[in-house]
């Protein structure tokens, strides 16, 4: 936003509440690392020193859903696990976003077999599908940036008493 530059010029700043809210929301996305299998290891690498998710304001990985607004589903979701994932998603406060990390969560991936859910969009609203098996850490960071862009376009009225899944945020703009 270039806050400092503006403030030194006039000493004040005009903006919309909407824009301010969206800006603060997008700059501190707290992910809920739903690490289920192999992709979770790459998600750990993103938190590690080489890729360092802290550069994007999201290093606060909380393992309790109640403090998070972005769920990264990393790993194969089986039918048995799907109920747990759904329950955790329901516990997250609105507004919330979901990244389906990896081929497994997006479409079942290489597991065309009886226990694996063929894509978590069958029971969760997904915002970003992330390709790769596993996606490289840079790719996950890219997804995070895209989610931030998406959050940056939200307005306060988007969240009025409606679950986010019913909103089409991008088209509202």
């Amino acid at each position: 936003m270039g806050l400092e530059a503006k403030l030194t010029q006039d000493g004040f700043l005009t903006t919309k509440i909407d824009a301010l809210l969206a800006w603060s929301r997008k700059s501190s996305v707290w992910p809920m690392p739903m690490g289920i299998s192999c992709c979770a290891i790459e998600m750990m690498a993103v938190g590690g020193p080489k890729y360092d998710i802290a550069r994007f304001g999201s290093e606060v990985m909380r393992f309790t859903p109640r403090q998070c607004d972005l769920m990264i589903v990393a790993g194969t979701v089986t039918y048995k696990m799907s109920h747990v994932v759904k329950k955790i998603y329901d516990q997250m406060p609105d507004p919330k976003w979901v990244i389906a990390m990896g081929a497994c969560t997006s479409s079942g991936g290489m597991y065309r077999s009886y226990p694996v859910v063929q894509g978590i969009d069958q029971f969760l609203p997904v915002d970003i599908y992330l390709a790769g098996c596993p996606p490289r850490p840079d790719n996950l960071l890219n997804a995070l940036i895209q989610i931030q862009e998406k959050i940056g376009r939200t307005k306060g009225r988007d969240f009025q008493n409606k679950p986010l899944s019913e909103l089409n945020v991008i088209q509202n703009n």
Partner: peptide, 16 residues
């Protein structure tokens, strides 16, 4: 005699 893809409906999914 069990198919690889399973038997549809034998394992429930949560509601959307």
């Amino acid at each position: 005699d069990f198919p690889v893809l399973g038997i549809p409906g034998s394992l429930p999914l949560p509601k959307k």
